[in-house]
Amino acid sequence: MGDFRYWLAENKGTLLAVAVFVIMFGIYTGNHTAGFSGMVVTTAANKGVLLALVAMAQTLVVLTAGIDLSVGMVFVLANCLASQLVVGSALETTFGVVVVLLAGVICGALNGIIVIYGRLQPIVTTLATGAMFYGIALWLRPIPGGDVNSDLADALTEQLPGGIPTSLVVLLGIVLVVWIPLRRSEVGRAIYAIGSSEPAAYMSGVNIDRARLTAYIVSGLLSACGGLMLTFITYSGEASATIGGSYTLNSIAAVVIGGVSLFGGAGSAIGAIFGAFVLRTIGDLLFVFDFDPLWQPLFQGVILLGAVTLGSLRLLRIKNRLDLFG
């Protein structure tokens, strides 16, 4: 019983995000004219998975008490690269996928190396590397276009026989292969440790550099996975600063809604995934209720502000004003 209490306390943020998503998605499917049909779910899932992957990437870095403002640009870069390479025969396609993922790893590693060994602040570093990644993306694909192996694309973005969207299965697979083992490993715990208190982690003999580098590398990898999925959905690549910027910003919003602490050390990528789903469902809800699409940006902003302001309710319980300052 006592154990359950601690588990609940640890996963409060994640569970809240899941609950909010379930309610919102219920409303959405309940009011959609097509009902809970496969198409609705698949379209929603595909959009959600893209942001979910980028949000997972953001989570890794945020857990270390950093911030990665280049996730969206890695996502765009991977998209442009994939639209060039992930075509042709099975062998060529496989090679392309590997190169795209590798590019993500390299981007992440570059961020990590600059932050760790260059001792620059993550926010400034990733703001600048983001510009670099965007430059490369633009160089790869000056005008939108390109192609992708359509067999693979269809296989990963449509439905399984049971009506389950394949993209969700892909996401689940990534969670099982990347996130869960990382969370349970020593490196994963070290990522939480440095986010929670870096001096304490250092004094405890935690390998800080290794953990931080891992966080950035996995972040790059996950963003690249997202870019790859984007290519499979759109069949093309586009070097768009707008897309990159909006994914970066939404990833931060998703992380916050998913209960990950921006101060590091607490939260889960699972929460961030549901945070991403919540964000995506907002847009769909507006559509279902016949709102003018012009209202969507305002609505998203207000929801984001509302969500973070709700978190401020805890302030009412603070009885020692010094606790306000952390």
């Binding site: 305002l298 902003g301 207000v302 984001l304 973070v308 302030l315």
Partner: peptide, 29 residues
């Protein structure tokens, strides 16, 4: 939001950016 609600500025100003964008899109849209 930052001073009294104690929301990290990174996220609150991000939200304000979206709100400002929303308002301007509505105006020009």
């Amino acid at each position: 939001g930052v001073a009294y609600l104690r929301v990290p500025s990174m996220i609150f100003t991000l939200g304000m950016n979206a709100v400002a964008q929303g308002l301007m899109v509505l105006r020009t849209g």
